[in-house]
Write a protein that binds this DNA or RNA. Sequence first.
DNA 1: AATAGTGAGTAAGGTTTACTTACCAAACAA
DNA 2: TTGTTTGGTAAGTAAACCTTACTCACTATT
Lengths: 196, 196
Amino acid sequence: MKTRSTNPPGRIKIMKALSTLMEKKDFDSITTSEIASEAGVTEGLIYKYFKDKKDLLYKLLEDHFQLFQKKIDASISGKTNAIEKLEVIINTSLESWTKSKVFAKILLLEVRSYPDYYKSRAYELIKVYAKTVATIIKQGVATGDIKKDTDHQTLTKIILGAIEHACLGDIIFERDIDIDHISKNICKTIFKGIQP
Amino acid sequence: MKTRSTNPPGRIKIMKALSTLMEKKDFDSITTSEIASEAGVTEGLIYKYFKDKKDLLYKLLEDHFQLFQKKIDASISGKTNAIEKLEVIINTSLESWTKSKVFAKILLLEVRSYPDYYKSRAYELIKVYAKTVATIIKQGVATGDIKKDTDHQTLTKIILGAIEHACLGDIIFERDIDIDHISKNICKTIFKGIQP
DNA sequence: AATAGTGAGTAAGGTTTACTTACCAAACAA
DNA sequence: TTGTTTGGTAAGTAAACCTTACTCACTATT
């Protein structure tokens, strides 16, 4: 049995088209007819492959995130120390998000306001990412790499929040940031604290 | 000269109506006719007072944020130590944002994806808030309340990011959080660090 | 006291946009 | 040959956002 193509050319072109358009505009002001004409297909085809306009966005995010998660997994695979792991996660995340602004825009600005996003596969993947961080912290506390009295839930939020917020300004205003500088400073602050 | 009312009843009712509707639904799925009927006015009146549907959202955020900024200013007015100031800002922010979910939803989920938000008065106010935090940190570094080698820009992002991320889950899934627990742990982590 | 002007609001479209439904054509299996 | 699945088109629909033309009450001025 020849495995029937689950990803026909039209479908690929549609996703690529939205990705291209998102580089210049926000999701809300991109129309379906615009997506279709950019992809070189008709509007109706979008609805053959995607439930609605938002579903298309979730699928695009899913694709991007799959690659991202692989990078994350690869980056921590060699390390054993929890602090080291967190360091590379922070660095890899910042790098990926600033390199692919469209991906970051979808993740940080667009999907969150849509309730059905939280039922999507894309959101399931993001939970895996958050859990990766949380697990490293828990284990770090257990092994003593991290202070014993650390609340792992709060620390997870601080780290994820810091990464996001560091990217936000640069996504919105399309500036370029010094990833190494920022990730080093995030690590220094969180690891060593700021009180003299 | 009698000061002519700059805020007529219809305008107030429209803003109140959106606020009420936002408690149950997201902005995107609230229609203008729904807002009008909730307010007891006609659809056309919305466009007498607001440029478009989004402008109404920005004005609502502006109102909420004005009150918020007052609380923040009041909370730091007594303190002199930078660490103490940051502590109350974290606590007050978490408290305000979790108490008024609609406000937090607009601020953290809705407006950010709209480019013209960054030209609104609401956004100007948010910049003042961020600047408040940044200034406290700068002064703290100068006076020695905070470690000399601290990068104030990064620390600002960590703190704002931590506050936001701590609220996010609770806004989205409408859980209630233990503000004191979280704000204490955010402070402990950032101030003292996590390395043993 | 008549007139002109303004602020608050309505009513009824117009336009755009997301989505649907019916149809077409080629490849391929029976 | 004929039926079925797959990839794609074309035209239409309902509704959402927004506009335009109008009304009515009140105030200021001459």
